[in-house]
Nucleic acid binder design. Sequence first.
DNA 1: TCATTACATCAGTATGTATTGATGCATTTG
DNA 2: CAAATGCATCAATACATACTGATGTAATGA
Lengths: 118, 118
Amino acid sequence: MLTMARPEAVTIKAKLFRGFADPSRLAILDALRRRPMTVGEIVKATGLTQPNASNHLACLHDCGLVVRSQDGRYVRYRLSDRRVAALLHLGDVLLADVARGVYECTRYDAPKAGGGRR
Amino acid sequence: MLTMARPEAVTIKAKLFRGFADPSRLAILDALRRRPMTVGEIVKATGLTQPNASNHLACLHDCGLVVRSQDGRYVRYRLSDRRVAALLHLGDVLLADVARGVYECTRYDAPKAGGGRR
DNA sequence: TCATTACATCAGTATGTATTGATGCATTTG
DNA sequence: CAAATGCATCAATACATACTGATGTAATGA
């Protein structure tokens, strides 16, 4: 059960934040904060594998957090809105004060790399 | 793999956003946005079971997003910082423009209720 | 003291999802 | 046309975690 008042509103909003809540997606968003980038550049900047980056980019694109533009055989991604950057910035600012708590929060851990096939 | 630049920074920041990225925790945070509340009030406001609410509250408290104060045998929770509310507000604003995308984003779904024991 | 209320913790589990290697498709280059 | 490059998609899987019912603990009241 979620909330009595407006269950779907909370669900969707959580989904929005979930776009920021994965280390790989956040690394992509942070990279795009500086400048638009092709998938290859994003792969280099984040260290993600190419399929993994593509998958997260598709997710971010579906959710409207990034925008895609074809450029020859390159695909260039950029943040869709200034407020996406604003939210990232607010996260930084907030983190500066609650970082210690986040460190110590062991209720959930960030997904570890190597979750795939062995 | 996460990011080449500052891996841990991204991981921690993702952890911070993860506090907002679950429907139950978000329902709690949204409820606390209006006023401080005891656990019982939160349970009523959100429709969560009491143990589930307590668990998420412990998580939010560990991460520094909420603050707890004993009041007799009641425990009253409130948002720890104005910027937590600001981030929630920015989420609302951003959602107003990208809501359609979030609806259609099927890469991940919000956790469904009833995930526990059968 | 005993009962009650408010909240926290525990053990167990189903489920979402992030990851990987392999493969497919489109575009440019020789 | 053939080769190469850039990106997207697929199938399979390990893992984190959100949930439930039961139980534990602390504070109040009779």
